[in-house]
């Protein structure tokens, strides 16, 4: 007999190690992409300083920023300093990236959590309405609405909502975080509604499949009510099989924050990334790409782990 080592701790440790390796790979990929790029921060700096943009000035600036070193040296250097918490300095603002990132991660997390809440609530509502309602009208409306929501670009939805509720009715601010919870409403809706619609479509399909399972006939034959069957038997089973997809959808919210932060001028990681990208500002770009990837990887990993925890059948395939 082979030695039995492990248990949940080893499994979790393995998963964490796997995720760490994944982050490393992504850092390498994104670094490689940056090396292939045309133009870098040196050009941006020279352009900003004014005067003639000459090759000599760019080369000098590149040397000053350390951009003329061989790529592998720069990567190792960056990695080494990242381990100690030093994420470099932003060329654009001249401030340490670590500090800037810490400032911006809070607003993004707040936005992502609110968006996830909206998404999960809407997803549950769509899934349950389409499977519990006895008439034809309500499920049809729900299906149409969810289809429409996944088919409209988030920024267009944002334009329409801002025009209606901020500009015309004045209920919510159009930009920024000032105004507390009221400022959070529209960004969270724009982030959460399309994801919730996608979630609802998945959950609804799974629920319909589960409702035809023999164990639901058995549950009803035992005398459980339709509502009890739906909520206590069908929903957990459908939710478990939807968990992995749901994890992907919610992980994609990390990307969604880019658009939402850009539309609403939300001072989070997403808008930080976009301005760094436009300036070709390497260190902040690297840092924010990696951080958003970590968010995505961790939420996917968490959903897989949750699925395995609830459903023993998911363990071997996960």
């Amino acid at each position: 007999m082979r030695p039995r080592w492990g248990g949940p701790v080893a499994v979790v440790a393995g998963r964490v190690a796997e995720m760490a390796a994944l982050v490393l790979v992504i850092s390498l990929v994104s670094f490689g992409l940056l090396c292939l790029t045309r133009g870098d921060a040196a050009t941006s700096v020279v352009r900003e300083q004014g005067g003639p943009v000459t090759q000599e000035r760019i080369a000098a600036e590149r040397h000053r920023l350390g951009l003329d070193l061989p790529p592998h040296e720069r990567y190792v250097d960056m990695l080494g300093r990242a381990v100690t918490g030093d994420l470099g300095v932003s060329v654009r603002t001249g401030r340490p990236v670590a500090g800037e990132v810490v400032e911006r991660i809070g607003p993004t997390l707040r936005l992502a959590l609110a968006g996830s809440l909206v998404a999960v609530l809407l997803g549950l509502a769509i899934g349950l309405v389409e499977n519990a309602a006895t008439g034809r009208v309500l499920p049809a409306v729900s299906r149409g609405l969810s289809l429409l929501l996944v088919s409209v670009p988030a920024f267009a939805l944002a334009f329409a909502l801002v025009d209606q509720f901020s500009v015309r009715l004045g209920w919510f601010p159009t930009q920024g975080m000032a105004g507390g919870l009221r400022a959070l409403v529209l960004p969270a809706l724009v982030l959460g509604l399309p994801a919730g619609a996608a979630l609802g479509r998945v959950l609804s399909t799974r629920l319909r499949e589960v409702m035809a399972e023999p164990y639901l006939v058995m549950a009803r034959a035992q005398g459980f009510s339709r509502g009890a069957c739906l909520l206590r038997t069908a929903l957990p089973n459908a939710a478990v099989t939807s968990l992995v997809v749901a994890g992907n959808i919610l992980a994609a919210l990390g990307t969604g924050t880019l658009v939402v932060e850009e539309v609403f001028g939300w001072p989070g990681l997403g808008s930080y990334l976009i301005s760094a990208l436009r300036y070709r500002d390497w260190q902040p770009l690297q840092a924010s790409v990696l951080l958003l990837s970590v968010v995505v990887i961790v939420s996917r990993g968490a959903s897989l782990a949750l699925a395995a925890l609830v459903d023993p059948r998911a363990r071997s395939t996960a």
Binding site: V29, L33, L34, A251, A252, G254, T255, L292, S293
Partner: peptide
């Protein structure tokens, strides 16, 4: 496949589009 999935779709698209022009 895991690596590509874990890179947020729009994010990589954004970086690529930004870098390739």
């Amino acid at each position: 496949v895991d690596v590509v999935t874990s890179v947020p779709t729009l994010l990589l698209g954004l970086v690529l589009a930004g870098l390739l022009g």
